[in-house]
């Protein structure tokens, strides 16, 4: 990478940064004399660890306290300990599949919406990413161009993605409805109909993310040794059999990574939907992170929101453990 032909070698930006750092030596060389060179290691990890501890570790621990307290004050001293009341309320349900029968019905609406989103978004995204990666892995012209086209939306912010599509899906004058009308069909209120809104939220999220997963799968495909394919063709295997018996098994480790990353990201779906539909129509596209956000920052029910985020954390933890187990099993094979 260092010998890249690219005009941007990073050095243009790196050099001034390094000169500034060199000046710090006038302060830090005496410090080293004072504490000895081995203890300088603590100095090096300190800034990172401090920020990490204050803004990630402490909040992680505080989340438990919030989850077991009630009231509408965010200040810890004003919060009354309520034990497991928040969790009991979340799980007070006659029938978990029908949110209306739950006392915290919005949580379950969010949870079921999220489940549906995750299943369809992850499933179809991996399918399309794999198809695209396989296409890009063939001997084709313009591979770089196509790869860049598929990847470009990944860089766009969720807000920009949502606005691009909101404009296309406009009811009165959107280009998609114009297309329908030109085919002799009638306009569809894409974002005001619950089913269509759910469809578009999934489709747009696939549009925005699949380039990333395509790239990882493509790297996985390219790391499969050529000899494996040569051996398969010498054994007389056709393309279909080669795909199922050579490509897929060797791609499985990459697929596992992709699956888990995609799942973890899909469970946390929020910002793009927040801008596109704001959870609507009704609660059709309100997902679990938006439920937490609303409960905390709109309804000021911090305890319930923290309890819900602990449930979310457990789900994410299980997904991560699942990944570790799957990786271990694959390594053992």
């Amino acid at each position: 990478m260092r010998s890249t032909r690219f005009w941007f070698s990073g050095d243009i930006f790196l050099q001034p940064f390094l000169w500034t750092l060199a000046l710090l030596d006038y302060v830090l060389a005496p410090l080293q004399k004072l504490i000895g060179y081995k203890r300088m290691a603590y100095f090096f990890v300190l800034p990172n660890l401090l920020i990490f501890g204050i803004f990630i570790l402490i909040p992680m621990l505080l989340n438990f306290y919030y989850g077991f307290t009630g009231g509408d004050s965010i200040l810890l001293e004003n919060r009354a300990v309520v034990g497991t009341a928040n969790f009991e309320k979340i799980f007070a349900c006659q029938d978990f599949t029908r949110p209306n029968t739950c006392s915290e019905d919005l949580f379950w609406r969010g949870a079921w919406n999220t489940t549906g989103f995750v299943v369809f978004q992850v499933g179809f995204m991996i399918l399309f990413s794999l198809l695209t990666a396989l296409a890009l892995n063939r001997e084709i012209h313009g591979r770089g161009f196509f790869r860049a086209m598929f990847f470009y939306p990944v860089l766009l912010s969720p807000v920009v993605v949502a606005l691009i599509w909101k404009w296309i899906l406009q009811f009165q004058n959107g280009v998609l409805n114009a297309f329908l009308v030109s085919l002799g069909l009638t306009k569809v209120p894409w974002l005001l109909d619950a089913r269509w809104a759910q469809f578009w939220v999934i489709a747009i999220s696939i549009w925005a993310q699949m380039g990333f997963f395509t790239l990882i799968l493509l790297a996985g495909l390219q790391s499969i040794p050529k000899e494996m394919y040569e051996a398969a063709s010498m054994d007389g295997a056709n393309k279909w059999r080669t795909f199922w018996n050579v490509t897929m098994p060797l791609l499985m480790p990459t697929m596992t990574v992709v699956l888990v990353l995609a799942l973890i990201r899909a469970v946390q779906v929020f910002d793009q939907v927040f801008v596109l539909t704001h959870g609507g129509p009704g609660t059709a596209t309100m997902y679990i992170v938006q439920y937490i956000y609303r409960t905390a920052f709109e309804f000021r029910n911090y305890g319930m929101a923290a309890a819900a985020s602990l449930v979310l954390a457990i789900v994410l933890l299980l997904l991560t453990i699942g990944q570790l187990l799957m990786q271990r099993r694959q390594e053992a094979v």
């Binding site: 990490f52 204050i54 803004f55 990630i56 570790l57 402490i58 909040p59 992680m60 621990l61 505080l62 989340n63 306290y65 919030y66 965010i74 200040l75 810890l76 973890i264 946390q268 929020f270 992170v289 937490i292 956000y293 905390a296 911090y302 929101a305 923290a306 985020s309 979310l312 954390a313 994410l316 933890l317 991560t320």
Partner: peptide
């Protein structure tokens, strides 16, 4: 500790992080 928090997203800790 650092590696284990690779999977802790903002969405999980947003309330206490806001307090901090």
């Amino acid at each position: 500790i650092i590696i284990s928090t690779l999977m802790v997203p903002v969405s999980v800790i947003m309330i206490p992080a806001f307090l901090v």
